[in-house]
Amino acid sequence: MTHAWVSVRRLKEFGMLGMNCRNVDFINRYNPRRLFPLVDNKLKTKLLAQEFDVPTPALKFVVREQHEISHIERELAGLESFALKPAKGSGGKGILVIVGRQGEQFVRSSGALMDITDIRRHMSNILAGLYSLGGSADVAIIEDLIAFDDCFAGYSHEGVPDIRIIVFRGYPVMAMLRLATAASDGKANLHQGAVGVGLTLDTGRCLNAAQFGRRIKLHPDTGRPLSDIHIAGWRDILLLASQCYEMTGLGYIGTDIVLDKNAGPQLLELNARPGLAIQITNGRGLLPRLRHIESMTLNRRFRTEQRVDYAMRQFAEAEPPAQAVE
């Protein structure tokens, strides 16, 4: 039975990180303002990732000026499927996923059809800054579509499931899998109704799951038990996330990773103000882990592999105690 409120004492027991504490103690302290553009602009993140050999969906082309839109069909001619994104968009806003063609029409991931005029209008809106923070002028990115891994079949409604890992000073500290639902309209966004599945940091198995801030056991659309989720190649995913620390220099980031069927884990985007809901999906608070990393003084000497192995050991979930049999 879920109560309407939870006491401050209980939140402290769990070490839940609140919004004010996150902003003052972590974002303000570990994320220098001048580095924010690296993650707030997806184009910059992508170019940086290519420089650091971090795998990311390949960039096809960039639309920077309104006049380029009038003859955009020439650029799109060779592309069967693609993702169109605003470089400065936040929270998955303004992302258009085209999975194929039907004659002159483009097929969206939802199955809806669009013609070239709709795509032009969408691009024009992106350039005008409709989806960017504060409405500043933006550019549109066209990139390769992720061929998503079959291991999530039956776990996601339309959208691509992604893995969010919080990386603090280069150490992965908490992870969750975000699954799109009918309620979230195919978006992997928790406040829009996507399912968040907390993952154990040592093995990548399901720990807890939540939707709309409440615990759930089954995927609401497909009915598959979420507790069966186990992500293969977990250490490689953590390595990819941990690398983003060296790449950006930001101390407290959320990394969004997707699994491609052919190319393996890919960095989708980074977030310098990662949300707090990951704690609800895990059923664990972030604070004890963050304070632990904070108390380590020699962490700068560690390499990526060492940091990941340390985090996997340090934040491993204890086996649930075996039930005593009478």
């Binding site: 879920t2 109560h3 939870v6 401050v8 939140l11 004010n20 059923g283």
Partner: peptide, 17 residues
């Protein structure tokens, strides 16, 4: 102030069960 917001006592209610 780095404590919890009143709204977070509701937002994190799932931690109780």
């Amino acid at each position: 102030y780095t404590g919890y917001k009143l709204s977070e006592l509701r937002r994190f209610r799932a931690m109780d069960d």
